[in-house]
């Protein structure tokens, strides 16, 4: 367990009576990219929200050696950040203000290095620097995603969790986003990546979990999973087989 940054054991989340995630085990080793893929509604977003503490859940979450399950704010202070599916930017505020707020917990804890972090983020996303005074709400889809990732990096996270970073983006921009994800790993950030875009995610990840109906259906080396024919079935359904079952 010592080599893992994050260990999740037996995580269950229920919305009322419906269990959206049940008894899920998942680990992120230091310095690796782990991806969780699966069709819509499999419970991927729920899993991330529960890990960071936005949703109440049961089970153990050991992050960076501590397993006391504090609230979201404390989790962020410890070095876990989440780039949510909806991005959740501060639309009426400038890009630079959005980025600075990413460092809120670090500034509160007394670190005064946000100027250099900001320079690093700008180096990674030159477009954000060009538009730093512009309101976040005026950005295009791809730029918004970059801002959301940049904002999360301002916290100098140990674990960066990305929820559907390619959602709704054109293929060219998706490629750019995944290039950056690979670059971040080279810099030593551990990443937990939730994606619907299975092919791109499996190409960049070390390890993969396939989630279906709130439970892990398969897991293993990303390359092995990518080669598994059951992936296609899980995503698109195989007509002939099920037609008989449903019609009968």
């Amino acid at each position: 367990m010592g080599s893992n940054l994050l260990d999740v054991k037996g995580l269950s989340v229920a919305y009322g009576k419906v269990e959206a995630v049940s008894k899920l085990d998942l680990s992120v080793p230091h310095g690796s990219i782990v991806t969780v893929i699966g069709p819509n509604g499999a419970g991927k977003t729920t899993t991330l929200s529960a890990i960071i503490g936005l949703l109440p859940s049961t089970g153990r979450i050991v992050f960076d050696g501590a397993d006391d399950r504090p609230d979201v704010e404390a989790m962020v202070a410890r070095g876990m950040t989440l780039v949510p599916e909806k991005r959740e930017l501060f639309g009426s505020m400038s890009i630079e203000d959005n980025l600075l707020l990413g460092a809120f917990q670090r500034c509160r804890a007394g670190h005064r290095d946000h100027a250099t972090t900001l320079a690093d983020v700008y180096a990674l996303f030159p477009r954000l620097k060009e538009r730093r005074a512009q309101a976040a709400g005026t950005l295009s889809g791809g730029e918004r995603q970059m801002l959301a990732v940049g904002r999360a990096l301002m916290a100098k996270p140990k674990l960066l969790m990305l929820d559907e970073p390619s959602l709704g983006l054109a293929p060219l921009i998706v490629r750019e986003i995944f290039r950056i994800i690979a670059e971040l790993r080279r810099r030593g950030v551990s990443i937990l990546l939730v994606e619907q875009n299975a092919r791109a995610a499996l190409q960049v990840a070390d390890h993969a979990y396939v989630l279906e109906n709130g439970a892990v259906k398969m897991q293993g080396e990303a390359q092995a999973i990518a080669a598994d024919p059951r992936i296609v079935e899980s995503y698109l359904g195989l007509a002939s087989k099920h037609q008989e079952r449903l019609a009968g």
Binding site: V174, Q196, N197, A200, L236, S240
Partner: peptide, 19 residues
């Protein structure tokens, strides 16, 4: 028809993602 759509490369791309 469902069978046609399932074999359509554009649909496969949209669901599984292009690289």
């Amino acid at each position: 028809l469902p069978e046609e759509v399932q074999r359509n490369p554009a649909v496969l791309e949209a669901y599984l993602g292009g690289v």
